[in-house]
Computed example of a mutant assay.
Amino acid sequence: MTAIARLSIRRLVCLLAGLACPALASAEDALKFTTEDYPPYNFTENGTYKGVGYEQVVMMMQGISTSYTVEMMPWARAYALAETDPMTCVFTTAHIPEREGLFKWVEPLAVDRNIVVSRADAALRVKNIEEARSYSVGTQRDDYTQALLERNGFTKIDLAANLDLTIKKLESGRIDLMPISEKFLTKLQRDGHPLKGQFVLTEQKFAVACNKHVPDSLINQMQANLNAIIADGRQREIFVRYGMEVLN
């Protein structure tokens, strides 16, 4: 019998006996954070998790007695787990209207713009959403940009399993455009990817989105710690370290 199973039985015995069991702690009480590989917010380098979002989450959990884990995975799975698992939060998540009532929010980890981009050698010139609707636009499944595109009347949407695949489709000419974080676009261009921005699609907050069953007391502790990280300048230091422009 596993330790979790033993503790679950102990909880049941306490409940049947009418006893309070506040001291029982197990993996069931731990908070699980899920995220994706999306530099500079979250990524792996030499087997180590790094990034603007990741570092803030680690700082945010300091001094909180609840144990936690962080796991990187494809975005659709990371997001779905936060929707369905009672003690799961996903980051770095865009706080958009379509998601407002789905989660409890801890924010902001950052404020960023989303840019619609094309290949650098593309002859097309797109100035706004109306002009962009006539082109094929790619993004990753269940990313917030999928909701943005659908909300704005795009019909030629190509959905991929992850961001890297969408980038490959754009660079190979299989799609015409894709929306992407301005910060990530800057990194891709520095790394030699032949991409250029066409126009600004949106500006949004990035946040930690937690399952609605995560206790309010824990959400409040996380928000208070994030507020302190912002107020004392540690968030700004993280932005600078990862080469992100600080938005005031």
Rank of each mutant, 00 (worst) to 15 (best):
S8F: 10
R10M: 15
R10E: 15
C14A: 15
L15D: 14
A17H: 15
A17P: 10
G18H: 08
G18Q: 02
P22M: 08
A23M: 15
L24P: 00
L24N: 12
D29K: 03
K32E: 14
K32M: 14
T35D: 01
T35V: 07
T35C: 02
T35N: 04
E36F: 11
D37N: 15
P39G: 08
P40L: 06
Y41S: 09
F43T: 05
E45N: 10
N46I: 09
K50I: 01
G51P: 03
E55L: 03
E55D: 09
Q56D: 06
M59C: 09
M61N: 10
Q62R: 14
Q62H: 10
Q62C: 09
G63F: 05
G63C: 08
I64P: 00
I64Q: 00
S65I: 12
S67P: 14
T69D: 06
T69F: 04
M72Q: 09
R77N: 10
A78V: 10
T84H: 08
G101Q: 12
L102V: 12
V106T: 05
E107I: 12
R113E: 15
I115T: 00
I115H: 03
V116P: 00
V117H: 01
S118I: 03
R119K: 13
R119W: 03
A122M: 07
L124E: 10
R125A: 15
V126N: 05
K127D: 10
I129C: 01
E130W: 11
E130V: 14
A132D: 04
R133P: 07
S136Y: 00
T139P: 02
D142L: 15
D143M: 13
Y144A: 07
E150N: 13
R151Y: 08
R151M: 12
N152E: 14
A160I: 01
A161C: 13
A161H: 12
L163E: 05
K168A: 15
E171H: 05
S172Y: 12
S172D: 15
G173Y: 04
D176T: 07
K183E: 12
F184D: 05
Q189K: 13
L195F: 04
K196F: 11
Q198F: 00
V200W: 03
L201T: 02
L201Q: 02
T202Q: 13
Q204E: 14
F206N: 00
F206E: 02
N211Y: 04
S217I: 12
N220H: 13
Q221F: 04
A224C: 09
A224Q: 07
N225I: 12
L226T: 00
I229E: 04
R234W: 03
Q235E: 09
R236N: 12
I238Q: 00
G243Q: 10
E245V: 15
L247S: 14
